[in-house]
Amino acid sequence: MKRARLLFLQVLVAVVLIAVWHFGSTVKVPAGIVSQKAFYPLDPFFFSTPLAVFQRTWRDFYTGVIWYHLGITLLETALAFVIGAAGGVLVGFWFARKQMLAAVFDPYVKMANALPRVVLAPIFALWLGLGIWSKVALGVTLVFFIVFFNVYQGVKEVSPTVLANARMLGMSERHLMRHVYWPSALTWMFSSLHTAVGFALVGAVVGEYLGSAAGLGYRIHQAEGVFDVTGVFSGMLVLAVFVILIDAVVTAVENRLTVWRPTAAGQS
């Protein structure tokens, strides 16, 4: 009952927003009320109309043009996530176990992480061309640091008691890695999974936006270039639905892999 009510309210928000948009962009305010001329509160030239956006989106899927671009963006996102996460896990582990190394590189890691990634996009395009790899590289620089910091934290924050217990149970350094540090780091990594996947997508789309020949970012950029607001909104709609779907997949994976974790609601 509570769930149905929640869903109802959530849908209501969408309906109200779309209704405001729809009437604002299709019903003119008559002349003489606010200004001399009749006008649309939300000028369709700047805001398009919901109907046009849905029609465009439907057409894109129906004719199949969008699938190719979706596929490219998905591929870039997946590659950026996998490479960035793998690098973050490895380096995070390594730094957490070698304090000296971590101390030496600390200022550089902070510096690199503080750099706005957008400025890197042209460099990557220069180095790696306009294909998918420059976008993957941009996503990797975003994902890497999120995973790196979380894994580092995860390894450092293993409970000293659990660690002492593990050693008293006869675990060697290799066993500790496998049975203690690794699962602990994984938990922290999963807690950042949503953010990491989101950033992988941001990297891909921003990269496409700044220079490419395919992908959702490219489509949005193309539409903007010709003042095709309907195309821009349609691209954003596809992107938003895409993100929600990916997030649902991540949630499913997360629930699968962290069954041992207490949930707030308490499942026992």
Binding site: T161, V162, A164, M171, P183, W260, R261
Partner: peptide
Amino acid sequence: FQAEALFPWKSAVDNVAIGLEV
């Protein structure tokens, strides 16, 4: 130990078995 020392990511049986496994 006084504090919680079980491995939270292992089930009870795996927690008990680990000492033999290693």
